[in-house]
Simulated assay, not measured.
Amino acid sequence: MLGASGNVGTAVLEAFAGDGHDLVGVCRRVPPEGAPYDGARWQSVDLARTTADELEPVFRGADAVVNLVWAFQPARDTGYLERVGVGGLRTVLEAARRAEIPHLVHMSSVGAYAAGPAEGGRVDESWPTTGIPTLAYSRHKAAAERLLDAHEAAGDPPVITRLRPGLVLQRRAGSALLRYGLPAFLPRATLDLVPVLPLDERFAIPVVHTSDVAAAVRNAVQRGVAGAFNLSADDPITRRELAEVLHAVPVAVPRPVVRAAVAAGWTLRLHRLDPGWIDLAFATPLIDTTRAREHLGWSPTWSARDALRDLMIGMRSAEATASPVLRRRTVLGEALDGTRLGPITRRALP
C-alpha cells in the first residue's frame, strides 16, 4: 500500500488488522513502531523520484496494490505536486504491469469531476472527470484519470478500481489539516475565536469519514471489482453545519467576494489556502453512491455532520499519530520547521 502512513492509509491498516494479510507499507517517511503501523512491513519510497525499475521489486508477488499517494503541499510548487500525483501514478502503473499485479486500487477524488450541473442534483461515476482548471489538485486528479483510461484501453493488467471520495475527514487528521490550512503563527485555539463565517449560502460539499473510505478500500481489495466508485456520506456539509462546529454566525457573502479575499491573502502570503480551493468547493458536484453500495457492498456509517464534528474535535485537541504525516502541530514546532525547512507551501516535506 502506497501512502500507508497518511490519513486514509492509517485507517486502512486498521481496517485490515487481524485479517491475516501480509501488508507492505510504502511511504517517504517510515513511521515509528507501534499500533497501527506495526501491522505492516515498511519500504521508504518517494514517488516523485523513484522509477518503475526500483518499484517493481516492492510490488513483486502482491495480490493487489493500493495507491493512496497524493501531495497537497508545497502548494506553490505545482511541478512537484504533479510529479507525485501524476508522474507517480505513471510509475505505479508501469511497475504493476511489470510485476504482473492483478489488481490496483487507486484513490482518485471528487475533485477530478468537472463542475456540477447548473440545476443541481447528484452525479454518478459517468460525470466528466475533467477537473476544475484553476486548482492544481483538481487538474492533476483529472490527469491521473486520463492515465487510468489509457491503461484500461490498452487492455493490460492490472484490473483497476477507482475510488472517488468527497472531502475525507477524521479526528486524527486534525493536526495535519491545521498544518496545511492555518498560518504557522496562529494557535489552534484560534478556531474558537471566529465570530462570523462569511460564506455564500450555496456552499455544499460532499464529505466522508476516513474510516468509511478505509472500509471501501478493504471491500475493493477483497472483491477485486473494476471501475469507479463514488464515496460520500448521505448528506453534504453546508454553510450551516460549518458555522455550527465553529460556533460562528453565518453571514451571506457572495462567492466572488470570498474568492477575492482568499486570493489576496494567498498573494500576500498571509495564509496557505490556494484560491482555487474556493473554486473547487463551489463547483464540486454532490455525488451518487449507488454503485458503491451495489457492487462494493459499501455504505457510509458516519453522517457528514458527525464526520465534521469528529474532525473539529481533532483540530481543537491537536489530535495526531506517530506518523510524520499526522504528527502533532504546535506553533513552536511550526516556527522551528519554518526556520529550518522554509515555508510549508514551498518545502518538499511538509
Rank of each mutant, 00 (worst) to 15 (best):
T134S: 15
V84W: 05
Y113E: 02
L2K: 09
P250Y: 08
R29L: 09
L23V: 12
G3D: 08
A220P: 11
H209P: 01
N230P: 04
N230V: 07
A318I: 13
P300K: 09
T210E: 03
A35K: 05
R255L: 01
R309L: 10
M315L: 13
I278C: 03
D22I: 10
V69N: 00
R329T: 14
Q43A: 15
R171C: 13
A144G: 15
V58D: 08
P343F: 12
V325K: 14
L191F: 09
A4L: 06
V12H: 01
A136I: 00
G265N: 00
E82M: 02
R346G: 15
D63L: 04
L242C: 01
P256H: 11
V110F: 09
P158A: 11
S108L: 09
G121D: 07
G181D: 05
L104H: 02
G342W: 11
G121H: 06
P133Q: 12
T330D: 09
C27N: 14
T129A: 14
L169W: 14
S211G: 03
L177Q: 13
R90A: 15
D200H: 03
V66Y: 00
A15P: 08
V92W: 12
M312G: 02
E294I: 03
R49L: 14
V110R: 06
A95G: 09
T51I: 06
A260H: 08
E152A: 13
E82A: 10
V196G: 00
L68Y: 00
H21E: 14
L336S: 12
I160M: 05
S303M: 10
V168A: 11
R60L: 11
R28H: 07
R327V: 10
Y37V: 04
V213L: 07
I344S: 15
Q73A: 15
D279T: 04
P128F: 04
F185H: 15
A318G: 07
A112N: 08
A322I: 05
G85T: 10
R316T: 11
L23G: 03
V213F: 02
A112G: 10
G3F: 05
L242S: 08
V245Y: 10
L13R: 09
F59N: 05
H106V: 00
R28W: 04
G276L: 01
R171F: 11
D212M: 05
D234L: 12
V258F: 01
V213G: 03
S175R: 08
E201G: 13
